[in-house]
Amino acid sequence: MHIQIKEQGDIVIFQIEGEIDLYNSPGLRQQLTSRINKGSKKILVDFSNVKYIDSSGLATLIEGLQKMNRQKGRMMLCCLNQSIMDIFEVARLDDVFNIYNTAEEALDDMAK
């Protein structure tokens, strides 16, 4: 898994490439927590190049979302492929996260 972090205005974009499992979710958790602790209020996680996620990855995202909620920030997800969307739906996390089809839609909403 590789994470590229970009900033667009006050929005921090996590572009993740690869598979998110028990092996690499600690790395994602560390980078998300670091950004949240630095006071980022808007985080977009771009799944365009994510091929797989398991419960370790989901737990990392839930933890990040809850931290963001506590500091009145927003964390959004975009560009989930159908396999990953199925996993979110089965776990009923599609209602918990704000999920967008494209990065543009998410960025437009975050800019409001």
């Binding site: 419960s55 737990a59 839930i62 089965v90 776990a91 009923r92 996390l93």
Partner: peptide, 17 residues
């Protein structure tokens, strides 16, 4: 319980589902 949103506990849910 899926209504109790928290990190962890989803692995067994997926296996059984």
């Amino acid at each position: 319980n899926l209504c109790d949103v928290k990190p962890g506990g989803l692995g067994v849910f997926f296996m059984k589902k």
